[in-house]
């Protein structure tokens, strides 16, 4: 991991010095242990603040939207797929972006870290695939692999799919088959159980919109939640309004979601919102053989069609 940081700094500094890019989007160390902050490096000196470890949970493609300058961007596998999506959807042009690709071994889940620590985390260190957290009560160490985010556990593309300057050699992919256990568990329930399950799942939602704002796919000039003529959804804590919001948010990501997990990482109430987007991701694969963001020249699943798409449900 230290290796990654050094390489990222060196590559970014060179890019900035040569004028190939105007800025580099990466991470700097956060003010709290276990949290890093997205950071815009504008000078070679800034590049020395860049870091990389297993606490880079947000998707940096989110910070690319509408940029007019030449951008270097540090990207893990899922971020790179969203950069592709951005290029396809013309949020940024391919020529503008220089991807500094980070082969990713997964990000730690904030809740799992909290559970490991069992209290206020004072320091967090990472070495040799182990994470050590220190609290007032003492120190605890665990394998990083036991602390991964749910989306990282099932990740199929740890290596960036668009990679101009690799920050390190590719890592072996750990999964070869799609793991849909979480979704299938819900599918196996009865209809009423499923309705109740999602009512409970979403019950803590405060409508802070961290899930949509952390999502690189959410860039509409006016989000449907802000539309007023007509107003599609109420803004309060009514459970049907909350459900409408989450259903439509997930649907807007259909065929575009790379399962980067930024939404869940951002949610302050720890709501597993991926259980909605994940269903659509699964459907897209099963129905249309589609995986989002793998290339920068194919339109996403809902923006294309074939004449023989499934239609057994249409009368």
């Amino acid at each position: 991991m230290i290796n990654y940081t050094e390489n990222i700094r060196k590559i970014s500094s060179d890019l900035l010095k040569s004028g190939k890019v105007d800025v580099v989007i990466g991470y700097k160390s956060g003010t709290l242990p276990g949290v890093n902050e997205p950071f815009l490096a504008k000078t070679p000196e800034d590049a020395d603040k860049l870091v990389w470890d297993s606490q880079c949970r947000l998707n940096l493609a989110n910070y690319l939207t509408h940029r007019k300058d030449k951008v270097g961007i540090v990207a893990k596998g899922c971020d790179s797929r969203n950069i592709n999506t951005h290029i396809v959807e013309r949020r940024i042009s391919r020529e503008q972006v220089t991807v500094i690709g980070v082969p990713c071994t997964g990000m730690t889940d904030k809740t799992r870290l909290k559970e490991l620590a069992g209290g206020d985390i004072l320091t967090l260190t990472e070495a040799g695939g182990k994470i050590t957290v220190k609290t007032a009560k003492g120190e605890k160490t665990a394998d990083k692999n036991d602390l991964l985010q749910d989306n990282c556990i099932r990740c199929l593309h740890r290596n960036p799919v668009i990679n101009d300057i690799p920050a390190a050699d590719p890592v072996p992919e750990v999964n070869t088959t799609r793991n849909n256990d979480a979704i299938e568990k819900i599918e196996a329930m009865s209809a009423d159980e499923r309705w109740a399950f999602f009512d409970d799942l979403l019950s803590g939602c405060t409508r802070c919109y961290a899930c949509k704002n952390a999502c690189p796919l959410c860039y509409c000039p006016t989000c449907f939640v802000d539309e007023s003529r007509p107003q599609w959804v109420g803004k309060g804590d009514d459970p049907v309004d909350v459900r409408t919001y989450h259903t439509l948010r997930a649907f807007h990501c259909a065929g575009r979601c790379t399962d980067c997990g930024a939404c869940e990482a951002a949610c302050p109430m720890n709501i597993k919102v991926r259980l909605l987007t994940g269903k659509l991701e699964k459907s897209c694969y099963e129905r249309f053989g589609w995986e989002a963001g793998m290339t920068s020249d194919v339109r996403p699943a809902l923006d294309t069609f074939t004449t023989h798409d499934p239609e057994e449900f249409i009368k």
Partner: peptide, 28 residues
């Protein structure tokens, strides 16, 4: 054709959340 893909996913998403299949109908 676009509608067909949209409805495929929407129907699956709503049924997944517990809406009965008989609440949503599509036809040509």
């Amino acid at each position: 054709y676009y509608a067909r893909r949209k409805f495929t996913l929407l129907k699956e998403l709503l049924e997944y959340q517990g809406i009965e299949p008989g609440r949503l109908h599509f036809s040509w």
